[in-house]
Design a protein around this nucleic acid. Structure first.
Lengths: 321, 321
DNA sequence: TTGAAAGCGCTAACAC
DNA sequence: GTGTTAGCGCTTTCAA
């Protein structure tokens, strides 16, 4: 039945009618037990309610669909213990592989799994130990794009609102920030760097602090969508005009970015491509049986809108996935 | 091992150390085969990239976590064929039950599954055949809340942008719309009802059409978050002041609603409660072995913000789940 | 080309 | 209280 070519056409036809007649559906659980794979993938992200991750998950699902894989999604809420639990449960139920967006924290617990040759691909952030294939976007370049743009518009005091300081995303972007600064002979001022914990409230508070400085920054770069939103609202509440008094750029695009006034300029990560490539990569690892080595670094896009102060786009919102 | 109370303490301890020593992990696939259940749930929604569904899925996942169930999410993109395929695959891989947000279309194919006593609970929309337990919010009341509010503010020409016309959500809300109208002796004008297909672009186009009418409506009610966003942008592009010239209310809350200017007034569905209740309901059905009968209708919340024209809230964004 | 048999890892039932 | 066994439904191997 699983190799129809090796069977006499007539027998084959008989079997097929029998299948129809009995409304036979193979028991996939039994098949999994026997074949020792489940055709399902685990995806572990911080929060499926974050549009950044949601778009990646959607891309993973779409790509899996083509290969008849299922996907199970788990949330970590940036808690390494929840991450451990999720990975454990997932491999416990024998997913064939995991796409993991690592929380900040110590990932050495993963060596157990890689030793057992269980396929894991990371996305969004790199981790040091163990060394795993990963699919991310070029965060240093992304940050440089935003910074260069602001500097070109004349800004020299630029506040930056970061995520958790020990993650590769933050360090890569911060490196971009500092390099652009020094390339333009602008001194680094630690007071212009604030951690917003990737949350709306964090962005809001950071802006309040920035505007208490003398002199305050004339531009702000918020390193994820939630913090950009918080920053945006803070400017409004503080009655600081954007972009006239303070320009604002966000990292990661989101649907409502175009509906804000001014529309939010952002550096967008290629979420669809990340999901797609990560899936293809892990599927290749699973199906070849060999641990992958190669990682992928995808380019970010700069999306000009109004909040940086150089152009105002209107019309039906568009979004880069 | 699965019934530790029936075993001598000493033996038990020996077993436990052996488990540790061998790093034994039970094979859940074999267990599923034997116990004839998989401890996983399927969730079928239109699009996991829609914040409305994402919040529900998140609530389902959280509730499942407490009961050690896993969840597999599938997207239908409002395509009944994709829905059929998803349900088929899901039950094919032996999920123990499915939480289904039905697309619009004919759901009679589901009778096969209910006949096999496979547990299904619907959310968001009711379907006629087969009759299934369902968890929704009170859409007629929700729509009435928005309408009454607008009418109290003096509006008498109110445009409404609907989703797909044959769904229970749309018909329930439209019933609310008409009833409020007639309660206030306002004639029904079919030109003030437009389908926006639940999409940003649909909301945008509907507003453009509304504003071509003479006289145009003085208020608009967009029946989901995406269309509300499109409507909002259209007003801006058309240089119609909101709320002074045209008031706007949306259905379903979303994070950026507070960041818009004016902040968007919405009728919010209790997405967390929907996910939670649907999960508890299906878990009860699965674990009792009896088909559930009861459905749940949860109350919506009205969230006053600026776009209706009566109050402007600012501060750190808040959101009702 | 077809049919028969063994076994994946677990658990439920039953004998000890 | 403990040990043994059969069998969940499939696939793979080997014999006919």
């Amino acid at each position: 039945m699983n190799r129809p070519e090796r069977v006499r056409p007539e027998t084959r036809r008989r079997v097929e009618t029998a299948i129809k007649a009995l409304n036979y559906q193979p028991n996939l659980v039994a098949r999994s037990l026997r074949r020792r794979h489940t055709k399902t993938l685990g995806v572990v992200v911080a929060d499926i309610d974050d549009p950044f991750f949601t778009k990646i998950v959607r891309a993973v699902q779409d790509t899996c669909g083509e290969s008849a894989y299922q996907v199970i999604v788990c949330n970590t809420d940036e808690d390494i213990e929840k991450e451990k639990a999720a990975v454990q449960t997932l491999f416990g139920t024998h997913v064939d592989g995991i796409i993991l967006a690592p929380t900040f924290g110590d990932h050495r617990y993963l060596v157990n799994y890689v030793r057992q040759a269980l396929p894991i691909v990371t996305i969004n952030r790199r981790i040091r130990t163990p060394r795993l294939p990963c699919v991310i976007s070029d965060n240093e370049t992304g940050c440089r794009m935003g910074m260069e743009h602001l500097i070109k518009l004349g800004h020299r005091r630029i506040g930056i609102i970061t995520g958790f300081s020990k993650t590769s995303t933050t360090t890569d972007r911060l490196r971009g920030y500092r390099r652009v600064l020094s390339a333009h002979n602008i001194p680094y001022d630690a007071r212009l760097v604030r951690c917003g914990h990737l949350r709306v409230e964090g962005g809001y508070e950071a802006v309040k602090e920035f505007l208490g400085l003398v002199p305050p920054p004339t531009a702000i770069f918020a390193l994820n969508n939630a913090m950009a939103e918080g920053a945006f609202v803070a400017l409004r509440d503080l009655r600081v005009r954007c972009p006239e008094d303070v320009a604002l750029i966000g990292y990661d695009d989101f649907r409502a970015a175009c509906a804000l006034q001014p529309p939010l300029t952002v550096v967008a990560q290629p979420t669809r491509a990340i999901g797609l490539q990560a899936t293809q990569l892990i599927l290749r690892i699973i199906e070849s049986g060999r641990q992958g080595k190669r990682s992928l670094i995808l380019p970010p896009h700069f999306i000009h809108r109004g909040s940086c102060g150089c152009a105002v786009t209107t019309g039906v919102p568009t979004q880069v996935g």
